[in-house]
Design a protein around this nucleic acid. Structure first.
Length: 272
DNA sequence: CGAACGACCTGCAGGC
DNA sequence: TGCCTGCAGGTCGTTC
């Protein structure tokens, strides 16, 4: 499911429900996620007050009076708010019950997600290696220029590297490069200053528009209120291989880059 | 070192 | 109808 806009949408949808509430209990029905969910989570978090909910990269951080809960939605995870307990559906792995009876429920068919308790206010090791947020001022030309120097890897893989910039997954990397007019296989080091600047601008505009649309629903992304995201109808090339380019009518091609399907318009996106 | 690959897991679409 | 294969929004550890 989720790249940055979908995680941001989820985060915005749950914050008002969670903030200033106390955690009554955490029921773990399926601990076998990306890392095993330990008893530590329930023991440390139950009874605690939630002081805030934020996002870093594709992680959701539930800040507690003491420590924090780190959540990642993986490929297929989503969170929703239940007004009261409902029978656990298939793939519901964790219920976090609040003191007012509402429940934050985590569902994740593929179990690639993660729920971890981190005891102090320092950054969790998983967050330490992360690059800047793409919508922050730290994601600027001088920074990207320095990172792209001597990097032979395809620009698409480069944009999807979390140590370069966070939050950009397969959908948005594909879209950003289409809008920037750059072939996804172009080595990062070959791109000019101007091209990197365009990538930065398109990254910010695409992500902002996707957040405004509530994210991209391909099949199973829904916000915490159960609404789909409407950005799928704004996609230019993602999942459109063999169809006509919406700009020039050339047939959209696709290729595998680092194991991920990558569609592009051979006319609008020359290789550099 | 950097880049590619396999692994984790389930569901679904398409081919036969 | 049903079986088999391949593919899917992410990330990490291993391998080349």
């Amino acid at each position: 499911m989720p790249e940055l806009p979908e995680v941001e949408t989820t985060c915005r949808g749950i914050v008002e429900h969670l903030k200033a509430r106390q955690i009554k209990k955490i029921d773990v029905y399926e601990p076998r996620l990306r890392y095993p969910v330990t008893e530590n989570l329930s023991m440390a978090a139950e009874g605690q007050t939630i002081t805030g909910v934020s996002r870093r990269a594709k992680y959701i951080i539930i800040q507690l009076l003491k420590g924090q809960i780190l959540i990642h939605l993986g490929m297929s995870g989503h969170l929703k708010i239940l007004k009261h307990f409902l029978a656990k559906e298939k793939h519901a792995h964790i219920d976090l019950t609040l003191d007012n009876g509402k429940i934050l429920r985590y569902c994740d068919p593929r179990k690639f997600g993660l729920w971890l308790y981190h005891p102090d206010s320092s950054e969790h090791p998983l967050l330490k290696q992360l690059g800047p947020e793409p919508l922050s001022e730290q994601f600027h030309l001088a920074y990207l220029l320095s990172k792209a120097k001597n990097k032979k890897k395809p620009i698409k893989s480069f944009l999807m590297s979390n140590d370069i910039v966070v939050g950009i997954g397969n959908i948005y990397a594909t879209e950003i490069l289409f809008l920037a007019g750059i072939h996804p296989l172009s080595p990062a080091q070959n791109l000019s200053k101007q091209q990197l600047q365009i990538i930065i601008e398109k990254t910010k505009s695409v992500l902002n528009k996707a957040i405004a649309a509530g994210g991209t629903t391909l099949k199973d992304f829904f916000s915490s209120e159960g609404k789909p995201g409407y950005f799928a109808q704004s996609l230019w090339v993602y999942a459109r291989q063999d169809q006509a380019c919406l700009i020039c009518s050339t047939e959209i091609k696709s290729t595998k880059i680092a194991g991920r399907n990558s569609s592009y318009c051979p006319e609008c996106q020359p290789l550099f």
